[in-house]
Each structure stands twice: as structure tokens, then as C-alpha cells.
């Protein structure tokens, strides 16, 4: 995509998606910039999740393409897209509930090496040790070091979210997609998650966040895009969006 500037990591280029006769997304064009946090907000049914599903390869777009660092993602399978550097956190934490916390992170760390499938019964021991050390390190950073041997399913919701983030970050992704990371959390858990995400942002991570909670959006985002009825109706800094009448109308459902 020629028009993408140098520091654009992910470019969603004129994406359309129709389900039967329903236009879920029309003319969606987004440029996610390096090391920035880009929030996508909008009322229910605006097409936010559809957009995320198209980026990670779960749904094919009807028209248009998604480009990461100049490489087209559209048409690739979810695991290939992840291998290229797209990591996703789900609305309800998707973790391996039957595995221990440390194994969760280790499986994730193995993906880069083994995701495309290679069998190595022998010789894997050394690097397995390295991966284990990395996993311990990241869990310590995330404050889960005292729960490493516990079953992931027994963690609290806030801790499951932390674990899922750790699983994504150990892969050192190019871009991190967050689908309502604080949905269903208490105010206290939400604030801890915001702090955690601020730390992640400070490392220079490029983040796309879908969020309902404006408190979260305004604490984190550098740029906000407003999606309504499958179209981007406004884009700008959080302060601009707060002042925008178009946004208010879209949210309050007033006739324009």
C-alpha cells in the first residue's frame, strides 16, 4: 500500500464485510501507527468485533485487505497471521484452563519455534530450558510468579486476563489486539489492568483496543476511531472525540 506512511504498522484498507444483505462494515480504513495505542469505540453492533475478526483471519473480508508492515494478511489462516506478529486478547480470556499457568505461557512461547509444526523429540532440551526461563521471567513481571504451578482455570478473572496478556507478550508480537480487556471486571480490577496496559504501552508496543468503558479509552488511547453502523464516523485524539457532537449523537442514537 503506497499511501501508508513509514510508521504505520497495520493498515486496514477499505474493508467491506456483508453478511447476507447486512452491511456489517463499509469502507473501513484504519492506519495503526507504531508504538501508539489506537482505540476503536462505538455502540453495540457497530462492527467492532467483526473488524477484529477480520484482522486475525477468522473472517474473510468481502472486499479490501489488511496489511501488516507491507505484507497482506487477508487470506491467511489465524495461526499464520499470529506467526507474522499479531497477538489477540479476547473478551473472555481464552487460556488453557487444564494446564498450569507456566505451561500456558510456555505453549505460547513454543509457538514461534514449533507452531508451523516440526517434530523434535531430542535436542529440544536446551532451548526448552531457555523458554522456561523466559516464561518464569514474564510471569514474575506480571505478578503471577506465586501461581505458576496452579491450574489456569482456578485463577480469578483479573489474573486470567494477566495470564492471557503474558501469553501474548512472550511472543514479542508486532501488534497487540485487545478486545474489551476490562469487560466484566470490578473497578479495582479495571484500574489494575489499565496500569498493566500502561506499562505494556511504555515498552513501545503497538496496541489496538476495542472498549466500551470510556474511562479505559481516555486513560490509554493516543488516537480514537468511532465506528457506528459499520462506518468510521470520526477519528482523532481522545479530547477531540470527547467534544465531538457526531460521536455523542451516534452513542445516544439521536437522529442526525
Amino acid at each position: 500500500m503506497a499511501k501508508a506512511s513509514e510508521n504505520v504498522v497495520l493498515h486496514v484498507a477499505d474493508v467491506h464485510k456483508t453478511f447476507g444483505g447486512l452491511h456489517a462494515l463499509s469502507d473501513v480504513d484504519l492506519s495503526i501507527e507504531e508504538a501508539k495505542t489506537h482505540a476503536i469505540i462505538g455502540p453495540n453492533g457497530a462492527g467492532k468485533s467483526t473488524l477484529l475478526n477480520i484482522i486475525v483471519g477468522l473472517l474473510p473480508p468481502t472486499r479490501g485487505a489488511v496489511v501488516l508492515d507491507g505484507e497482506v494478511l487477508t487470506g491467511k489462516k489465524p495461526h499464520e497471521i499470529n506467526q507474522m506478529g499479531v497477538a489477540r486478547v479476547f473478551q473472555t480470556p481464552e487460556i488453557f484452563i487444564d494446564l498450569s499457568v507456566i505451561d500456558n505461557v510456555m505453549v505460547s512461547a513454543f509457538a514461534k519455534r514449533d507452531g508451523a509444526f516440526k517434530l523434535r523429540f531430542s535436542k529440544s532440551l536446551e532451548s526448552e530450558k531457555e523458554i522456561n526461563q523466559r516464561a518464569v521471567k514474564i510471569l514474575t513481571e506480571f505478578g503471577l510468579d506465586d501461581k505458576m504451578e496452579e491450574h489456569a482455570g482456578s485463577l480469578s478473572r483479573g489474573h486470567k486476563r494477566r495470564l492471557e496478556l503474558a501469553m501474548c507478550l512472550i511472543q514479542q508480537p508486532r501488534i497487540l489486539l485487545l478486545d474489551e480487556p476490562t469487560a466484566g471486571m470490578s473497578r479495582h480490577d479495571t484500574n489494575t489492568t489499565i496500569d498493566l496496559l500502561k506499562d505494556i504501552k511504555a515498552t513501545g508496543m503497538t496496541i489496538v483496543i476495542i472498549e466500551h468503558d470510556m474511562h479505559v479509552v481516555f486513560s490509554l488511547a493516543d488516537k480514537v476511531s468511532v465506528l457506528a453502523g459499520g462506518r468510521i464516523i470520526a477519528e482523532g485524539t481522545p479530547d477531540e472525540m470527547r467534544a465531538s457532537t457526531i460521536v455523542k449523537k451516534a452513542y445516544l442514537g439521536e437522529a442526525s
Binding site: 487460556i95 514449533d114 523429540f121
Partner: peptide, 30 residues
Amino acid sequence: SPFGMMLKGIKSNENRMNYTGFNTKPYMLT
């Protein structure tokens, strides 16, 4: 082995395996 760990991951959450970058089919076939 790590291979066994991946298989347990598939049992636990095959979806997550895919989004974590694993092509689960060859693992299953093996």
C-alpha cells in the same frame, strides 16, 4: 515432551492454539 504439551493445549482450547500461532492439524494427524 513439548509435543505432548501442545497436544494438551489442543485438548484444552484448540481455538487459542490457532490464535497462538499453531497449525493444529499436523499435530493431530501425527
